Amino acid sequence: MKTTPKHNERIAKMTFASVYPHYVTKIESKGRTVQELHQVIEWLTGFDNDKLQELIDEKVTFETFFGKAHLNPNASLITGIICGYRIEEIENTLTKQARYLDKLVDELAKGRKMEKILRQ
């Protein structure tokens, strides 16, 4: 399935703070911790706990969130289907980055080992 310009714009304008609580709920309901979630986010973006909280408090959009991120060089190893989209086929850079994060959160919630999630 291909993303549309409307879909890409919706992701760009969505705030990270609005999605973050859903990530927490998803992983905690499966027995994972917020610390593990933060480890995954830091691996992908380079944001430590303080910077992550600052971005949440500022209610930055995903466009700003990923614009400030230093994406892990191994992020391109994140593949598969998330939300009906094959990650490696997504052409819009921002949408692909947002789906990388969704995929990592999904893997965490499914109980995958941290070494595998972090592509080590």
Rank of each mutant, 00 (worst) to 15 (best):
M1I: 06
K2Y: 05
T3K: 11
T4A: 06
P5M: 05
E9T: 07
R10I: 08
R10T: 09
A17H: 06
V19M: 14
Y20A: 04
Y20Q: 05
H22P: 07
T25F: 07
I27V: 15
E28H: 10
G31R: 12
R32H: 06
R32Q: 13
R32A: 13
R32G: 03
V34N: 09
Q35Y: 09
H38F: 08
Q39S: 14
V40T: 05
I41P: 01
I41L: 15
I41E: 06
L44K: 00
T45P: 00
G46V: 06
F47C: 07
F47T: 02
D48S: 11
D50M: 14
L52I: 08
E54I: 05
I56K: 12
E58W: 05
V60H: 01
T61S: 15
T61N: 11
F62L: 15
F62G: 01
E63R: 13
T64A: 13
F66C: 07
G67D: 08
K68M: 15
K68P: 03
K68I: 11
K68A: 12
A69I: 09
H70W: 10
N72G: 03
A75W: 03
T79S: 13
I82E: 14
G84M: 07
Y85M: 14
R86F: 04
R86I: 07
R86Y: 06
I87P: 00
E88P: 06
E91I: 12
T95M: 10
R99Y: 12
D102N: 15
L104V: 03
L104E: 02
D106H: 11
E107P: 00
L108C: 04
A109W: 02
A109C: 08
K110Q: 14
G111F: 02
R112I: 10
E115Q: 14
I117A: 03
L118T: 03
